[in-house]
Design a protein around this nucleic acid. Sequence first.
RNA 1: GCGGGCGUAGCCGAAUUGGCACAGGCGCCAGACUUAGGAUCUGGUGGGUUCGCCCAAUGUGGGUUCGAGUCCCACCGCCCGCACCA
Length: 810
Amino acid sequence: MAYDFATIEPKWQARWADERVFNVTADPDRPKFFNVQMYPYPSGEMHMGHLRNYTYVDLITRYKTMRGFNVLSPMGWDSFGLPAENAAIASGIHPRIFTEEKIQTMKAQLKRLGGVYDWDREIASHTPEFYRWDQWLFLKLFEQGLAYKKLAPVNWCPQDQTVLANEQVVDGACERCGTIVAKRDLEQWFFRITDYGERLLNDLALLDRWPDRVRVMQENWIGRSEGAQFTIKVADNDLSFEVFTTRPDTVFGMTFAVLAPEHPLVEALITGSETETEAREYIAAARRASEVERLAEGAKTGVFTGAFAINPANNGQVPIYIADYVLLSYGTGAIMAVPGQDQRDWDFAKRYGIEIIRTVEPPSGFEGEPYLGEGPVINSDFLDGLDQASAKKRIIAWLEERGLGFGKVQYRLRDWLISRQRYWGCPIPIIKCPTDGLVAVPEADLPVVHPDVENYAPEGESPLASVPEFVNVICPVCGGPAERETDTMDTFVDSSWYYLRYCDSDNSEEIFDPAKVAYWMPIDQYVGGIEHAVLHLLYARFITKVLHDMGLVEVEEPFAALFTQGMIVKDGAKMSKSKGNVVAPDDYYSRYGADAIRLFELFIGPPTDDAIWNDNGVEGTYRFLDRVWRIGHGEAGIVVDSPPSEGDQALRAAAHRTVKKVTEDIDRFRFNTAVAALMGLTNSILDRLRSDEGLSRSVYDEAYGLLLKMLGPMAPHVTHELWEQTGRGPMLALEPWPVWDPSLVELEEVTMVVQVNGKVRDRIQVPSRISEAEAESVALNSAKLAPYLAAGTIRKVVVRTPNLVNVVIS
RNA sequence: GCGGGCGUAGCCGAAUUGGCACAGGCGCCAGACUUAGGAUCUGGUGGGUUCGCCCAAUGUGGGUUCGAGUCCCACCGCCCGCACCA
């Protein structure tokens, strides 16, 4: 009879909760394990793709618990954000009501899957109890000058009616809604993450249990480059501009200079020049162009300003151009152009007939085009003959001696734009006073609770601005009338520190107790999607370092180990509501139960890889669990009260080998092969049960007990029920993880392969401790080898005990 | 363009170190049970076979090696990241 998961599942879910099996407190006497999944946005919709992650995290919680760790596995909700707000605009329902309903739905789904968390520590970022500390954190950054407001050209999403951080712009489009972003000059709040750029880069080396590709992505994003910055004077007037270059060694090859169209000096240079009209048209066109068009690599175009620059190295005069291939936002927004050693400058010089001077000797036979490789410096006065590294040092020293420039490290990383013109986010705790400027809300007045509004739709500014009772306030410094900041914070601010709050979630006096954080941090296993490789994960590292510097957090890095799981793909696309290819779990729950779903999620493929959904897969794992059930209920064969046969002994050894295999596979995140190994063990038990002599009770009890324990974290409901029903104990989750007997794992006898010239010609059972000489002798005496050996002369015998002998003949 | 990864059966995949290629599952075929089967169970599932075995095979072509899915080179295809960053 098929097992009754519909009864078993609620029973055990209730017991885990009622007996508080997975609720924990800091205990310095026990090794801790802090297991966290990136807290989800409460969309309310959970499909098979989501369940994969939750299954992994729950498996780790249960496995590490059985391994003796004090495991903290909390859950929370990234519950501010646009979907709730957009739903509110559409329906008029308050985003809080909408969000809290979704949270309840998702929580029920997690419980239905059998996920166990310390729910006492549940947090939700939209609650004043949580966002109060967002605001507190903001004030701490503000005090230190790490939060500041400035007028800057920023990314504006016309669809969402809000600004976006650089990290949220993908290929020139809003990463949320795909709308092409526009540039706007706006006063916005920034976090000074660039102050931490070097540390964020260097400390990537500490993250040896992160995927390489995530580290590489962060490295690229931070984008460190070494070079020099120096001043270039404009001929015939007092103007000058700064340039940054990574190739100061090629300065003698500068044959023109380029300013970005938005560069502040441009106006002065073109006014009254013979190319003024042309230049103004070019600048206007560049401003009109979208980011995507600007970034599309194509023909290098530009306009001569009519002005000339003086090369500080040799005082030669070169033309100054405006060109949109130079970006205002990187470096100084102006470059020295050296076509001999730079492809872009070469393209531009060719187009406009500008002189090209090589300053690096290309290898003989090198044809055309800029030379980017190493070679002796030429045409460069006192640098001639040097290699590139020496020339760089020499020219930087030369510039520094004369006060013309200096060596510089440049980062691609920009400050983090954190203000948003939306309703459903944490209010920024700042008061704008006509007398005192930007004033911090006193800590005692936190939280700045965000008010109800009539209309959620953003219209260029935050909906909070439409609430006079909220906006109008007394300045805490001068007591005069003032106005509140109405922007809200990027939700990535919340997620940059939420995991710390899990350590002390109901603290109403401080953001957290540093002692509790010291016990639990760092997170031993962090699990989430690759899409956060440079967003959340970089911000969280930054904020952790800030809190470390404030003395609140001991660790410098929050996530000791990172696992990024693959997606579930169906019909060639990631499972998502918008693609219309989601597989909802409901049918599978009612037909096969939670354990079969979990097991298939584990089995579907290597956890790091995307996996293709298979409609029949859950049925397969269900069949497997049903076999396990029938074995436990004596429906699958015969258990006999007699001493173990040879076959039984082999099964016992196989069971111990499986313990080793499964333990090692879980430790290295190879859940798919761990499940396969358990299926293999089950098949082996069935073989013995169905054998003519039956399976001896002692071996059956041991092997089946091991199977249940190993399967426990994967398919917890059915295994807990079987554990209890077969009288093994009251709570499988609290049993210790099994250990394998090394003497059993090592086989007594192995099959030795005997090859002739690399082809398998015989297989011989030999003792696993066979000596090389014996192995060779056994192999050469093989009757099956005789005809081959007779046909030639033995040249060599390669022996790899105990697995293989290869006889080379000719 | 730069950087990284991948390519194994009809499908998903396994193969810690260079050492028996394809574990486990899906699908398919046959049989059992059955009023029935889209349930369940059993067996099979590259080709050939005198049933002992033999042969072929890890995208393509080369190389190193006694031995290559694994290492090296070139090519083909797919995926990911970065990309006018000076």
